[in-house]
Computed example of a mutant assay.
Amino acid sequence: MKALFAEFFGTFWLVLGGCGSAVLAAAFPQLGIGLHGVSLAFGLTVLTMAYALGPVSGGHFNPAVTAGLCVAGRFPAARVAPYVVAQVIGAIVAGAVLALIANGKPGFDLVASGFATNGYGERSPGGYGLVSAAVTEVVLTAGFLIVILGATASKAVGSMAPVAIGLALTLIHLISIPVTNTSVNPARSTGVALFVGGGAVEQLWLFWVAPVAGAVMAALVARWLFADDAQAARGR
């Protein structure tokens, strides 16, 4: 239960901090955070929670990461579903809190704002189509998993893993916010899409399929790259 709460709260923090920076701060040009600030906010949420709650649950905060770690042999299959449920619930609760805060501003229109949802086509910030969005999410999630698996490998500098992971997520956002508004995390996408409905929910399938596919692809490569770690995990 401690691990599930850690995954719930860590994902809550990620969505509240990352999406909150986009909805509450980036909407005001005079604050000057823009794409760079939102990207950094997402990276900082993962970095801070990885240090705070990583020792409790492993610090996944992302269904794609959980699936990838399982395929890589670093996480037991029996624990995948409970982790994913905790992550999605945490994201939805964060979406609810963010909606409550945002609606405190007179005239705020949650649907018209986009509410930091992900999308392609007319829902893409830069107008990118389905194929571009799918490739972006698959490739960047795969890269993210390689960073996670490498930074947490037995030969890595363990205490610095959250820094590498947080900076990787920052880089991912700098690349892909114009394309999909950056998911690489199905829970993050779900947590805000449910409050917008319509096209945000209709396109949500991509932001489950593509990140999980990318994570699984990376995990299969990682089983070869980091074979010693997978064997050690199975032996524990």
Rank of each mutant, 00 (worst) to 15 (best):
P162H: 03
A134V: 12
D109K: 03
L16P: 13
F195L: 14
I175P: 02
R236N: 10
G43R: 11
G150R: 10
T66Y: 03
G54R: 10
F12Q: 01
W13Y: 14
A22N: 08
G34W: 11
A112V: 05
A50S: 15
A227D: 13
H173I: 03
A219H: 10
A156E: 02
A168C: 15
V163K: 06
L149Q: 14
M49L: 12
V38C: 08
V221A: 15
M160P: 08
P55S: 07
A50V: 05
F9M: 03
V179M: 01
L169I: 15
L145M: 14
A67H: 00
V84R: 00
L31F: 13
G198C: 01
L169S: 00
W13Q: 13
Y120L: 02
V15S: 13
L167R: 07
I175K: 03
S57R: 08
G95E: 04
G214E: 07
S154I: 05
G199N: 06
N185C: 11
L4I: 10
S183V: 01
T66N: 02
L4C: 09
A193I: 05
I33K: 12
K105I: 10
A91E: 04
S124W: 02
V216L: 14
I165M: 05
L35E: 05
Y128N: 05
H173R: 03
T11S: 06
Y120G: 05
F28T: 15
C19M: 05
F42Q: 11
M49F: 14
M49K: 13
L145N: 06
V147K: 13
V93F: 14
L98N: 12
A156M: 04
V84P: 04
F9D: 02
S159W: 09
E202Y: 08
L44G: 07
G59V: 03
V221F: 15
P162D: 00
G95Q: 06
A200H: 07
S124C: 03
A41P: 06
G214W: 04
A233W: 04
G104Y: 06
T48F: 14
A25F: 15
F226L: 07
C19G: 09
G198N: 11
L40D: 00
P162Y: 01
E137D: 08
T170R: 10
A81Q: 06
H173K: 05
S189K: 04
G90H: 09
A200K: 04
G73D: 10
